[in-house]
């Protein structure tokens, strides 16, 4: 659909079949990525005075990879995976999440968010706390509320666990805004937010995330049968390549067209990126005083005395 030049490099785990498609220009040195990310996770936790992290484990590849990376950086005993299914979530998601927990031997916790979500939207004709309008809510509203309920649970669980919430959003979904603000995007720090989905797959394969998780179609699993690619109308390798050339390599529209990308795709992706700028930034504060956070009061987050504990 997006298309573009060059054959894609076909990556396969064992020659037995394609595990995922990796555009060659996106291939990274996974050894260095692991090294840098492990240092990042340790640094972020220790400088904040913590040694533990927790991850909302969906059964998908992003959170599975982050769980593996945290376990590698801090040891599996320092990781809590929280599974937060809704009653319509795919059973396969839970199975895959269990697979990760079993493989890592880390702590896990299951919180069914159905009563929280249904308590607001209502169920079986019963009104919920959200009233009549909530009963008729769109899938978008429901999906957003689920993502934010999961955020609430994770942040609550972070207190008894004594750890920080580790983010699981990737660069592709962040750039096109395929994320719920203060929902799945909420975290203390994010180790994979500068990796495109294709690179997430490459790294996941390198660290040993189970193949079934790498192979399946990515889904937000907010309603049955939902997949990212059908919803967005793009395949991830195509979308990643376009974003890479557009953003990382600063190609103009004309150059992108010359490279073979479809003009409709370029237009659409540019619009998605521009209209989601707000999701990637701290909310703006009106400049009034002599020194304003983020404008002319600029301190590192972590410095002597900044640890909370």
């Amino acid at each position: 659909m997006i298309s573009g030049p060059g054959p894609s490099h076909r990556e396969s785990s064992d020659g037995a079949g394609r595990l995922f498609e990796l555009p060659p220009e996106l291939a990274i040195d996974t050894g260095i990525a692991q090294r840098v990310i492990a240092g990042f996770i340790r640094n972020q936790l220790r400088q904040a005075g913590f040694s533990r992290g927790l991850v909302g484990l969906s059964g998908g590849i992003d959170s599975a990879l982050v769980a593996f990376l945290v376990a590698e950086a801090m040891g599996p005993e320092s990781l809590l995976c929280v599974l937060m299914p809704y009653r319509t979530s795919s059973p396969e998601s839970a199975e895959h999440a269990r697979l990760v927990v079993d493989r890592l031997g880390c702590a896990s916790d299951v919180v069914d968010i159905s009563p929280m979500v249904d308590g607001y939207f209502g169920r079986d004709g019963e009104l919920g706390a959200g009233g009549a309008s909530a009963r008729e809510a769109s899938q978008l509203r429901r999906g957003n509320l689920m993502a934010r309920q999961r955020m609430c649970v994770l942040y609550d669980r972070s207190v008894p666990w004594g750890g920080l919430v580790v983010g699981t959003g990737n660069k592709t979904e962040s750039l096109i805004g395929y994320t719920t603000l203060f929902g799945d995007s909420a975290c203390a720090f994010n180790p994979i937010g500068d990796l495109y989905k294709s690179q997430v797959r490459q790294l996941a394969a390198a660290v040993g995330v189970p193949e079934a998780i790498i192979r399946k179609a990515p889904s937000a699993d907010l309603w049955p049968g939902q997949t990212d690619e059908s919803e967005a109308g793009f395949s991830y390798p195509e979308l990643d390549r376009l974003l890479f050339w557009m953003i990382d390599k600063r190609r103009t529209d004309e150059e992108l067209l010359e490279m073979g990308f479809a003009s409709t795709a370029v237009e659409r992706v540019k619009r998605l990126v521009a209209t989601s700028e707000f999701k990637r930034q701290v909310p703006p504060v009106a400049k009034l005083g002599p020194r304003t956070t983020g404008v002319d009061y600029l301190y590192p987050r972590r410095r002597p005395g900044s640890a909370r504990r």
């Binding site: 291939a27 990274i28 050894g31 260095i32 990525a33």
Partner: peptide
Amino acid sequence: PGRDLAAIHEVGL
């Protein structure tokens, strides 16, 4: 600061 992890580089960085 290390950046640009593209695998094409001689030392991966």
